[in-house]
Design a protein around this nucleic acid. Structure first.
Length: 607
RNA sequence: GGGGCCGUAGUUAAGCUGGUUAUAACGCCUGCCUGUCACGUAGGAGGGCGCGAGUUCGAGUCUCGUCGGCCCCGCCA
């Protein structure tokens, strides 16, 4: 069978495969696309032709064109065709209501074979459930699946929406360097060796933080960029080594101006991409309240369960574990008494992930408390617990008694788990939240010193700079995070715009004058030349797109993502380079990289 | 650095306490079929179980190691 490819030869598409409906009936059209399904009845051949916009049924019949029909038997899945023909309504009773174009079909008069295809390693269909590693190796095929393609169409709309919104407010889109100086924000840098300055390295930006501040010193007043950032840290379902931020900075502002701009952006984005209207204004919560009631700094406020501090109630308890703990918190679940012993054991294992030693619990029955620990609790303690946690028969209440970090993390994450278990979370809702009043500094117990919680350029709240000497833990920052359904989607701050203040901050962080000069000298210099008050915010675009599309993994909203080991299964990056390349860069490897056997792993499919 | 799950035809999976030629569905190939739409139908080809050791008379099944993928802790906003 001959499978000659033909040139387009002047043919042009007149329509996409997703738009032909009854209005088009009678017209001669030209469409091009991929063979999705083939139904060859011998005397009559149906093909569903797919392009980015959808599917259209085309029919090859001898009555229409014997030649077109005769040649069509060779067609296979994923062949690329150009067809010319007439749009006509489908015969009585033959319409397919499941298809947008299901009322019509195209009778083929002429067609060209533009490309053949090997049998794809997995079916190009939404219901295809091939292993992700296989899909990543053949990412260009995976992206043909409408479900995935849809994510990128939405991502495009989101980017356009952001650009329109910010342009409307006078923000300038300005690019900043990718090859830059290491300006650490806490994460590990990706380094790029310099050929012209041997032995020295550029770093890929963890974010354009310092550049956007310098653009404010430059007097450009309002900057934004949709920009790649790079952090060489371990990956997660929502973390990639390179990811995209919507990076924004503005001059002559305080927190409220940045926050209302940012709210407008998120609200516009949601309205223009998925038609969801977010509340106005977004509710707010302080960091302190978030930690106290939710145990996490990014509360999911779609359901009402809250943590209660019961330290004082059990301070004098016979139960030594409670009496002696630095912090004791309770989490009551109305109606949670139905949990089985097995489920409670599983939850106990779950909290151990976060450093908990165990999980105390009490089931409240009508006249008794079922619990391994109830016997230690006095009547007065019981009364106080009932009051504090609003306990009622049928409830269960969990306790965590330990160091505050462990208590909050364990119960905070248990709360999310229980929210799922009891169906308390309405997936169709979007509930944004501002978290404000973060501490400026965070104590690092390993290094026994304070580090910036946000980053070292964040301004202290008015009057709090003085606290840095006496009681650094009490100093609050002009910082704000935006949280959506328990996901941090953005965060920012008002920056220090005064060189002396910035130096004082470096002092507080234990960064020597000399060190500060080496690493941030250019910033300290710039701040001496009339820096305007400024601040900004950065959004994690990938995470926002995840929420907008309902994707389970960040990889489904990034066109060419990396695996958990930060490799690309399609290009096989990272890879060895030639000795000549290394020599040119003045690099000698300390150890010979261990050569992997060249055998194909489970993704190897070539015949 | 650590914990957990997984790896059997092109794909998705089954394979019980180790036992003759490793199952199924979809896909693929060939024939038939003028109203299908994940077309139908008759037939056919295709893997030695990620890789390497070990235990055993015997290993897809057990042990150890190793490679790869996913989820999580640490790390990272």
């Amino acid at each position: 069978m001959h499978r000659h490819l033909e040139p387009l030869g002047g043919w042009r598409r007149t329509h996409s495969c997703g738009e032909l409906t009854q209005e088009a009936c009678g017209s001669d059209i030209c469409i091009m696309g991929w063979v999705q399904f083939r139904r060859d009845h011998g005397g009559l051949i149906f093909i569903d032709l797919r392009d980015r916009e959808g599917l259209t049924q085309i029919v090859f019949s001898p009555e229409e064109s014997a030649d077109a029909h005769g040649r069509a038997h060779l067609l296979r899945t994923e062949y690329v065709l150009a067809i010319k023909g007439a749009v006509r309504p489908r015969p009585e009773g033959m319409a397919n209501p499941a298809m947008v174009t299901g009322m019509i079909e195209v009778a083929v008069s002429e067609w060209k074979l533009l490309a053949t295809s090997k049998t794809p390693p997995f079916a190009i269909e939404d219901r295809s459930d091939a292993a992700e590693s296989l899909r990543l190796k053949y990412r260009y095929l995976d992206l043909r699946r409408p479900k995935l393609a849809k994510n990128f169409i939405l991502r495009h709309k989101a980017s356009q929406s952001v650009r329109r919104y910010l342009d409307g407010l006078g923000f300038l889109e300005i690019e900043t360097p990718i090859l830059t100086k290491s300006t650490p924000e806490g994460a590990r840098d990706f380094l790029v060796p310099s050929r012209l300055s041997q032995g020295q390295f550029y770093a890929l930006p963890q974010s354009p933080q310092l550049f956007k501040q310098l653009l404010m010193v430059s007097g450009l007043e309002r900057y934004y960029q949709i920009v790649k950032c790079f952090r060489d840290e371990d990956l997660r379902a929502d973390r990639q080594p390179e990811f995209t931020q919507i990076d924004i900075e503005m001059s002559f502002v305080e927190e409220e101006a940045v926050m209302s701009m940012a709210e407008g952006l998120v609200r516009t984005l949601f309205r223009e991409t998925i038609g969801v209207n977010l509340p106005e204004p977004f509710p707010r919560m302080t960091y302190g309240q978030a930690m106290a009631e939710y145990g996490l700094d990014k509360p999911d406020i779609r359901f009402a369960l809250q943590l209660r501090d019961v330290t004082d109630i059990v301070r004098g308890s016979q139960f030594k574990l409670f009496a002696q703990a630095e912090l004791v918190k309770a989490l009551a679940v109305p109606g949670g008494g139905e949990l089985s012993r097995k489920e409670i054991d599983e939850l106990t294992e779950f909290v151990k992930i976060y450093g908990a030693k165990g999980l105390a619990w009490i089931k409240i029955k009508d006249d008794e408390w079922i619990s391994p620990i109830a016997k230690f609790l006095s009547a007065a303690e019981r009364d106080a617990l009932v009051k504090a946690c609003s306990l009622a028969p049928g409830d269960i209440v969990f306790f965590q008694a330990a160091a505050p970090e462990v208590v909050n993390q364990a119960l905070g994450n248990l709360r999310l788990k229980l929210g799922e278990r009891f169906g308390l979370i309405d997936d169709s809702r979007f509930e944004p939240l501002w978290v404000t009043d973060f501490p400026l500094l965070e104590f690092n117990p390993e290094e026994k010193r304070f580090a910036a919680m946000h980053h070292p350029f964040t301004a202290a709240q008015d009057g709090h700079m003085e606290l840095l000497r006496g009681d650094p833990a009490k100093a609050m920052a002009k910082a704000y995070d935006i949280v959506l359904n328990g996901n941090e989607i953005g965060g920012g701050s008002i920056r220090i715009h005064d060189a002396a203040m910035q130096s004082a901050m470096f002092d507080a962080l234990g960064i020597s004058r000399e060190d500060a000069e080496n690493r941030f000298g250019f910033l300290l210099n710039a701040l001496q030349y009339g820096a305007p008050p400024h601040g900004g915010i950065a959004f994690g675009l990938d995470r926002i797109i995840m929420l907008l599309t309902g994707a389970k993994s960040i990889r489904d909203v990034i066109a060419f993502p990396k695996t958990q080991k930060a490799t690309c299964l399609m290009t096989e990056a990272p890879s060895d380079v030639s000795p000549a390349q290394l020599r040119e860069l003045g690099i000698k490897l300390r150890e010979r990289p261990v050569k992997q056997p060249p055998e194909e792993q489970n993704v190897g499919l070539d015949l």
